[in-house]
Design a protein around this nucleic acid. Sequence first.
DNA 1: TTTTATAATCAAGTATCTTGAAAATGAAGG
DNA 2: CCTTCATTTTCAAGATACTTGATTATAAAA
Lengths: 139, 139
Amino acid sequence: MAARDNGISSMLFRNVMAKKLNLNLTESVCLTLLGINKVSTPSQIAKYTGLTTGSTTTMLDRLEKKGFIKRKLNPKDRRGIIIETDTKYSDVTSAMVVSVQKAHKKLISKYSEKELKIIEDFLSKFTNNMNTAAEEIEG
Amino acid sequence: MAARDNGISSMLFRNVMAKKLNLNLTESVCLTLLGINKVSTPSQIAKYTGLTTGSTTTMLDRLEKKGFIKRKLNPKDRRGIIIETDTKYSDVTSAMVVSVQKAHKKLISKYSEKELKIIEDFLSKFTNNMNTAAEEIEG
DNA sequence: TTTTATAATCAAGTATCTTGAAAATGAAGG
DNA sequence: CCTTCATTTTCAAGATACTTGATTATAAAA
């Protein structure tokens, strides 16, 4: 239940962030994935967001217009492109999350190395369960 | 980072679930919040999803038409109504999450009571940080 | 070198959202 | 009591975002 509530809160946190940045949820998700280098091409973005490639194109147009991303040539495939977040994105978001990151750091500092290991172990395995299940449901 | 990845995975899991149920993200979020009794009125749904009350009305129309929710009279306020999830919702979703829940239970069973206490403590405090930050950003 | 597959884009139609107003009820103050 | 202001939901019109299906270009395979 604690893990579930955590997921829900992160979702609600995203809602609030997105609203503040005048982004819709899809755009926010896209930028997050780009930010941690989970994705880097429109096709991948389409896959993870669940959008069609058509809407992905127009969504990227919007993000580019707002200055959050840039389209670059893909040296390995001349059909495709590479999407990168602009520094504007990290600037704007890091200003918003500075407070919560501070709180997180403080929280983490209260646990021993051993305890943190347990927590990290649980989280990564819990995450793995979800990823596996998502693939199952999808396929 | 593990906690962050967990949040992202739960988001991607939601995308997959929603797609499978022919729901958009907003509808999925709404049903989740209703399912755990975090919200029960259109106003609350509007607040947490970030929708206007107008779109909330039409979204609830869609969910009602699909048989996932029901509108009921609010005995405590005759201006408002109470939203409840229909059994159809829990039936459909529980079938989809049965596999991942099994995996989660198995994972949990591998930790001692003491370890679980640490994990639960961390998660609830981490969640709390996000809730607090969300309120700060919002206000 | 022909065929088939993949990547991104575009145009037209559909769905979903916002804005602003309406109707009904509640709450507060004289 | 009753006037005023706030709250809850709904609605209509317009704006925004999405899907579908086609197009162009390149890659990969036969």
